[in-house]
Design a protein around this nucleic acid. Structure first.
Length: 390
DNA sequence: GATCCACGGGAATACACGGATG
DNA sequence: CATCCGTGTATTCCCGTGGATC
């Protein structure tokens, strides 16, 4: 038992058994150190990356599969370990022999969510690749290419960078990465991660790794281990976890979102266990199809504030226009109705909200439409309120 | 001085409907 | 009957401005 677990145990026993031990352990957006049930894919990735361990550069690769198939879980776990090892190697070289670090391949991970411009994505890649601080303003994109050449091509350093969540509505396609890192192909290899099949891509990677959706019984294992981390012992039955897995169709994101939502509801009702009705309610708070909660949480803060207020509205009888006005009336938001309206349209465009045409009321002009959440509402509410207060 | 970017505002365009027109 | 037109909204698109950083 490590210190973290000991402290957690003491905190728990202080004020009696709580239903929820850790929301993080249940969150679809948080990834565990050691993902379940992906051993063979992990081996394939290691095979692919193996040249890097001898100082050679692997080819570029594309990891793809549907939402909730464990792509991010696997790659983040793998790259954080690789990054740790390569740092160790580098520091031991520095301290013992004082030769340069050119034969230690670096590993870096970048989440393309959270960058909204091409410049921003390039900056994030560079920032992950270099130890130094990379200026974000007052410099042009050309400077980034110069930096790449100086720090890598000219010094002989090499690195593999994983770039997650490419090709989503709000992120850039693989081609953007290729045209940036393709400037120094001898020094940096990329591992792109996305959902679309490789044959649909304009840029072909030399290798591809496919992750299909989870098998149901594997997903039950994932849920079981997350529940044992995040919930009090015996808080939910195996039956219910299996029901969630079946309902989700192998989508781990949606399954965890449903479990998380059920836990929130049970906790708010001060229950000690999660009963079947609550599980059902948890599933109902996850629209299908659902946008990934990570996509929502990567939005700029003001968009998230708009979404949070939208949840408190009875959206069903509001047009986009009136919803925007109601939301903008909130002084603390400090946004005009025009801007809120534009946000709502943009969010609908990117799949975070769904627009539905309302039945017209006055028969004049183009009929209004309304928006409804297309993301796990209970997860978002809980995480947002915890982060920004309410 | 250069450069990036979030906002706000509003112009331009699309759409729905009823009524007029050929 | 098929189209066109006018009106009123909804939706999309674009650009100037100002703050911030280097």
């Amino acid at each position: 038992m490590n210190i973290e677990e000991r402290v957690a145990r003491r905190r728990r026993s202080d004020d009696g058994p709580h239903l929820i031990r850790s929301y993080d352990a249940l969150s679809p957006a948080a990834h565990v150190r050691d993902p379940d049930g992906r051993g063979s894919t992990l081996e394939r990735l290691l095979d692919h990356l193996e040249p890097a361990f001898d100082g050679d550069l692997p080819s570029n690769a594309y990891v793809w599969g549907p939402k909730g198939s464990g792509k991010s879980a696997l790659v983040t776990a793998l790259f954080s370990e690789l990054g740790r090892v390569s740092r160790d190697v580098r520091s031991s070289i520095h301290t013992t022999t004082r030769v340069d670090d050119t034969d230690a391949t670096g590993f870096a991970y970048v989440d393309a969510r959270g960058t909204r411009t091409e410049f921003g994505l390039q900056h994030a890649i560079l920032d992950a690749l270099l130890d130094e601080r990379v200026p974000k303003q007052g410099v042009g994109g050309d400077r980034f290419v110069e930096l790449l050449e100086e720090r890598f091509a000219e010094s002989g350093r090499t690195a593999v960078v994983a770039i997650d969540h490419l090709g989503e509505p709000e992120t850039f396609p693989v081609g953007t990465v290729e045209s940036f890192l393709g400037r120094i192909p001898e020094s940096i290899a990329w591992l792109a991660i996305g959902r679309t099949p490789p044959e649909d891509r304009e840029v072909q990677a030399e290798s591809t790794v496919h992750l299909p959706a989870y098998q149901e019984y594997v997903l039950v294992d994932v849920l079981t281990s997350r529940a044992s981390q995040g919930l009090a012992h015996g808080a939910i039955s195996h039956e219910e976890l299996r029901r969630i897995a079946t309902w989700s169709g192998g989508d781990a994101h949606d399954a965890l979102a449903a479990l998380f939502g059920a836990a929130v509801l049970a906790s708010e009702a001060e229950k000690r266990t999660i009963d079947p009705e609550t599980v059902t309610a948890g599933m109902e708070a996850v629209p299908r199809p659902s946008a990934a909660i990570g996509q929502v949480l990567a939005l700029p803060e003001n968009r998230q504030r708009v979404l949070r207020r939208l949840l408190d509205l009875d959206v069903t009888d509001h047009s986009i226009g009136t919803s925007a006005e109601t939301i903008a009336a909130d002084e603390s938001l400090d946004l005009s109705a025009t801007t809120v309206k534009r946000f709502l349209y943009e969010l609908a465009e990117s799949g975070v909200l769904r627009r539905t045409r309302a039945e017209r009321t006055d028969g004049l002009g183009r009929p209004p439409s309304r928006v409804e959440p297309r993301f796990p509402t209970l997860v978002f509410r809980r995480v947002f309120d915890a982060a920004y207060g309410r």
